[in-house]
Design a protein around this nucleic acid. Structure first.
Length: 882
DNA sequence: ATGATCACG
DNA sequence: ACGTACGTGATCATT
């Protein structure tokens, strides 16, 4: 059996990975992309080769990389970005945890270590693989030594392999001659000077003829006279020096025994913890089911209750420690209650299963009784539990997921394992780790141990994290925001989801059929016009048709091909009649697939759509909507807008739709304290017209439509974190012209400029931005060494407080409206929120009262220096009400 | 799984 | 010299 060893050029691979992957960070902001990329390459190679031995070599000098030593004085290469530098020591720790041999020999460069080990191993009969991003190492290739150069591509990692024969095939020189080649042509990235004026071509020819630099100079007189020959003659010393520099040492005195590089246990508890901490979710799956074995101490305190008398005892003896909230979790699968998990001390963590005499009613009633007796609960993901967890906003509840979202709204999940990691500092298996893709009900029967762990961790983490999260909310000034806005909102959103919105199924079907007719006809015409059939919905195929077959101008490239986005096609309208048809085809197919067909599947048996609203998604504090997304139902184009006619109220009800007028600009007026803007709003003037009037020095009544629409675009730009490029793009004008607009705007409204500058400065100082109600958004991009990212951070710093404050305000209004409707025992209910708009399904007899409530609560949600103007419309469908 | 596109605020 | 407006979610094609 042949022995296999893999040798990795540590810094080189880290470097490649860093530049090959986007900037990934953990929830705490530690950069991890280079480490992840390195590990992906490592695993790919291990999977392919299954070697018995592995070593990784790092350079030792400086915390910088080898190449920089030479380039400092040239100043061509930038210093290692901090984002990469931070990852180097972590990478070494991870490798150590994996029992991978890391070689750092003072005085030796990684190249020389790799060269020496490779030759040593080859002599002892190993098959050797050297992994590096650096082509220098090709000189080491032989029949037994393979150089592997990974390329991070869109599709994943591809590896180029070079044995000696592959080097000869590709470069027409032997690995050994590769050194001579480098000696002649040099290598700027390695700062090997070479001979001036000699490049790849000349060097290749010379080495092909003379094999080596030594032999070349032995026969130097054979060269035909010329400029190049003269420089070659003059630079003999440089050539020899360059060759020396390019030569990798293969017999360094390393005092290293290859047996030390034997592979150990790659999948151990330490590595698992590292991956958890680095949040490498995809790599965790490699651990298979082993992680359940590394059970934490706490799992010994999990107990399963399956008979009624024991369950009675548990419920009777609940005594929370230190008046902490009880950790609670209702185990629900497919709308069915499977059990209840609760935790009220470190030692008391129960899973009470719904079996035998322990019925669904028993469990829900017991829990409800606890709430009535003023026990307080901590529940991760409370909204999803309310079907069985009978509590109201008047009960004492806490949701760690919402708290964790406020403390860091940038991450995508707030599951128990995330909260345990971030707030308890412990690494525990996630549901996926424990149960894979298995449904809960099946897991309860087939994997009782894992099922119990999932259930008990859920309540344990909720219990344990609650006080800490609450403390942090207090320390960050967000406790009031949490208690007075976010917690009540859980119940408001739940009520909205339960009520849902009625949809006219037949009308929706007709709408879709109508679209189908147009789509079929357009499709036919398009094929005829271009003379062939193709998939119009494929940007790739469409790009080829438009820009290659029809040779239309203005081709703009994306990463994958030509851009066929609407704004590009818009400019091509006059170039070819097919363009208009394609744009219309796009519009129609979008409407059909996403809305006509897409919405239909969500209509429940009650004739209503019960979409979901999410409270922990948007970084700015906005609510989001899925299954389906009811916040992006068409309105801007008439054809699309018609779909709103299928959203209808129940018999005996109407829709009341209320929306804030320009809430974000009003928020900006208030926050910036700009007198002009405030005055304009107090006088209820057309704000875009007044902006145009001021900016273009035109009397209010003489503002042209173009001036007004330009001013409107600038107003939007201000909210988005203005950039001349973006505004130019939007208005289809040059960057220069856009810049002039912005300058004029800031000259007219100096306080706005001052305010936006302050927002950026403060966010840079604190690392986050803040809304009027104290909501924070961390902006790590502001500290980036990358100009693009930093600029993005600056725009975010300007936008988040504005968008976020508006989000805070409408949330307050939603809670108050919902509460008043319920407290007054009214039949009307809030059913939708679309960022600055609320839709209520109002009972015929309550219309005037509901109108009053909506306007009062929306206008009164915050007292700003400008009025929060609110417009209400009534209608017998959503189209009419808007 | 990812990118391109497009629907909304 | 570089290249982007802010915040979302769904669908389709492609890998």
């Amino acid at each position: 059996m042949d022995k296999k060893i893999v040798l990795i050029d540590g810094h080189s691979i880290l470097n490649r990975a860093f530049y090959g992957l986007p900037d990934l960070t953990t929830s705490k902001g530690e950069h991890t992309n280079a480490i992840l990329g390195f590990l992906n390459i490592l695993y790919k190679i291990l999977d392919e080769e299954k070697p018995g031995y592995l070593a990784v070599a790092f350079d030792t000098h400086h915390p910088t990389f080898r190449h920089e030593m030479f380039t400092e004085y040239k100043g061509t290469r930038k210093a290692t970005p901090d984002e990469l530098r931070q990852q180097v020591p972590v990478m070494k720790e991870v490798l150590k945890a994996m029992n991978v041999t890391v070689i750092e020999k003072p005085g030796f460069e990684a190249d020389d270590v790799l060269g020496t080990l490779a030759k040593m191993a080859e002599k002892e009969g190993y098959q050797v693989s050297i992994v590096s991003g650096d082509r220098d190492l090709l000189q080491l290739a032989s029949d037994n030594i393979k150089i592997r150069i990974p390329k991070t591509k869109r599709t994943g990692t591809e590896i180029e392999d070079y044995y000696a024969k592959d080097v000869i095939e590709k470069y027409k020189v032997t690995p050994k001659q590769f050194i001579d080649l480098k000696g002649l042509m040099g290598d700027s990235s390695d700062n090997i000077p070479g001979i001036p004026g000699v490049g790849e071509k000349t060097a290749g020819k010379l080495i092909a003829k003379y094999q080596s630099i030594e032999n070349l100079y032995d026969h130097i007189d054979e060269l035909s006279p010329g400029k190049t020959t003269t420089t070659i003659k003059e630079n003999k010393e440089l050539a020899y020096l360059s060759k020396e520099l390019a030569t990798i040492c293969t017999d360094c005195d390393l005092e290293f025994n290859l047996e030390e590089a034997v592979l150990g246990d790659l999948y151990n508890e330490d590595v698992y913890k590292w991956f958890k901490n680095l949040e490498f979710k995809s790599l965790i799956s490699r651990f298979g089911s082993m992680e359940i074995d590394q059970s934490l101490e706490i799992e010994k305190n999990f107990s399963v209750i399956e008979n009624l008398s024991e369950a009675d005892l548990v419920f009777a003896n609940i005594k929370p420690m230190d008046n902490q909230p009880i950790g609670l979790y209702m185990i629900i699968d497919n709308n069915e209650l499977l059990g209840v998990s609760l935790c009220f001390s470190e030692k008391k963590i129960y899973l009470i299963k719904k079996v035998g005499m322990i019925t669904e009613d028993y469990l829900t009633n017991q829990v409800e009784k606890l709430a009535k007796n003023k026990f307080s609960f901590s529940v991760i993901g409370l909204k999803n539990q309310l079907k069985y967890l009978k509590v109201s906003e008047d009960d004492l509840v806490f949701d760690p997921a919402i708290a964790a979202y406020l403390l860091n709204p940038l991450t995508d999940t707030y599951h128990y394992d995330d909260i345990a990691r971030d707030y308890l500092g412990i690494t525990i298996p996630s549901v996926e780790d424990l149960l894979g893709k298995m449904k809960l009900k099946e897991a309860m029967e087939k994997m009782p141990k894992e099922f119990t762990a999932y259930a008990c961790y859920s309540s344990y983490v909720a219990y344990k994290a609650a006080p800490r999260l609450k403390k942090q909310l207090d320390e960050t000034g967000m406790l009031k925001l949490f208690e007075e806005i976010e917690l009540p909102l859980i119940f408001t959103l739940y009520d909205m989801e339960v009520r849902g919105i009625r949809v006219n199924k037949e009308a929706l079907k007709e709408y879709g059929d109508h679209l189908k007719v147009g789509i079929d006809s357009l499709e036919k015409q398009i094929y005829e016009l271009v003379g062939e059939t193709f998939n119009i919905n494929s940007p790739k195929q469409l790009g080829v048709i438009l820009f290659e077959k029809l040779k239309l101008p203005f081709a703009k490239k994306t990463k994958t091909g030509y851009s066929t986005a609407a704004d590009i096609l818009e400019k091509l309208r006059s170039e070819h009649p097919v363009i208009s048809m394609i744009l219309e085809y796009r519009q129609l197919t979008k409407l059909k697939s996403t809305y006509a067909d897409g919405l239909a599947v969500f209509i429940q048996d009650d004739g209503r759509i019960h979409g979901k609203f999410h409270q922990t998604i948007a970084a700015t504090g906005r609510i989001s909507s899925t299954d389906p997304n009811l916040q992006n139902i068409p309105i801007r184009m008439e054809l699309g807008r018609k779909i709103r006619k299928v959203f209808i109220p129940e018999e005996g009800y109407v829709f009341l739709d209320a929306d804030y007028s320009q809430i974000e600009l009003r928020v900006l007026a208030h926050l910036s304290g700009d007198e002009q803007l405030i005055k304009a709003y107090k006088e209820a003037k057309d704000i875009h017209r007044i902006t145009a009037s001021e900016v273009f020095h035109t009397p209010f009544d003489e503002v042209t439509p173009l001036q007004r629409s330009n001013a409107k675009a600038v107003n939007f730009g201000i909210i988005y974190g203005i950039s001349s490029f973006g505004l130019g793009q939007d208005l289809n004008i040059t960057r220069k012209e856009a810049e002039r607009f912005i300058e004029k705007y800031f000259k007219t409204f100096p306080k706005i400029k001052n305010y936006l500058d302050r927002l950026v400065a403060e966010a840079k100082k604190e690392g986050y931005s803040t809304t009027l109600f104290g909501r924070r958004r961390p902006i790590p991009e502001l500290a980036s060494s990358n100009y693009m990212q930093r600029s993005f951070g600056e725009r975010v710093a300007m936008n988040s407080p504005i968008q976020g404050t508006a989000a805070d305000i409408i949330k307050i209004a939603m809670n108050r409206i919902n509460k008043r409707l319920k407290d007054n025992n009214m039949r009307s209910r809030l059913i939708l929120q679309v960022h600055d708009e609320l839709l209520v399904e109002a009972h015929n007899e309550e219309v005037e009262e509901v109108k009053k409530i909506m306007v009062e609560e929306m206008q009164g949600a915050a007292s700003l220096d400008v009025p929060l103007e609110t417009e209400v419309n009534m209608g017998y469908n959503w189209y009419e009400a808007k």
